[in-house]
Design a protein around this nucleic acid. Structure first.
Length: 188
DNA sequence: CTTAGGATCGCCT
DNA sequence: GGCGATCCTAAGC
């Protein structure tokens, strides 16, 4: 399988991929928008699900790059990650927020809210709006239902510490589109 | 605007 | 049996 999708080499380190993903168009069954917020996770990263090595849950993280890793958070919300690095490494990028551009009605129906800014401003919200769940775990990002398209131009980036973790808190591995109104939280 | 608590379940120790 | 890479609501300043 090809590691390059939408002009991004998913075999690269996750912090690089996380930055390159900002501005990328992400669609799931035609519903989605452009990615405005990501977080990188890596092996040897205490905050990463892959830190303790391969398990049943994180198996996709140790699979081929350019595939999805989907997990259930707090028994309630699904979260979507893109696998990076070479197979067996255990790295990924959490897709935290996107600017809704396609399938707004489907998103509103799934989310139960109307405001476009509340549709995909967080990893759990995003997965719900795009209809992502366990069914997509391990799926290739190069094939339906996924569709990725490169950003029109390299967007202005901001970086900061990751959100909602208790380990490796100081690592500046959260990336965002500068000035976007669709972030899960503003950058300090 | 900031903070606190509850919901809810699969995974790992 | 404990604990989240979360979200929503309610209450406090």
């Amino acid at each position: 399988m090809e590691n390059v999708i939408a002009g991004i080499d998913f075999a690269a380190p996750s912090d690089q991929v996380a930055q390159q993903l900002i501005g990328t168009l992400l669609l799931v069954n035609g519903v989605g928008g452009r990615i405005v917020e990501t977080e990188a996770y890596d092996r040897l990263d205490p905050a990463s699900h892959s830190y303790a090595g391969p398990t049943a849950r994180n198996a996709a993280m140790f699979g081929a790059p350019g595939h999805a890793y989907v997990y259930l958070s707090h028994g309630i919300h699904w979260c979507l990650n893109f696998v990076c690095r070479e197979p067996g490494h255990g790295a990924g990028v959490l897709i935290r927020a996107l600017e809704p551009l396609a399938g707004l009605d489907a998103m509103r129906q799934r989310r139960g809210v109307i405001d476009a800014r509340q549709l995909c401003s967080g990893p759990g919200k995003l997965a719900q709006a795009l209809g992502v769940s366990r069914a997509q775990n391990g799926a290739s990002l190069a094939l339906p239902p996924f569709a990725l398209a490169p950003a029109a131009a390299p967007p202005p980036l901001v970086a900061g510490p990751r959100i909602g973790i208790s380990k490796a808190v100081e690592l500046p591995w959260r990336f965002g589109l500068a000035g976007s109104r669709f972030l899960s939280r503003p950058f300090r």
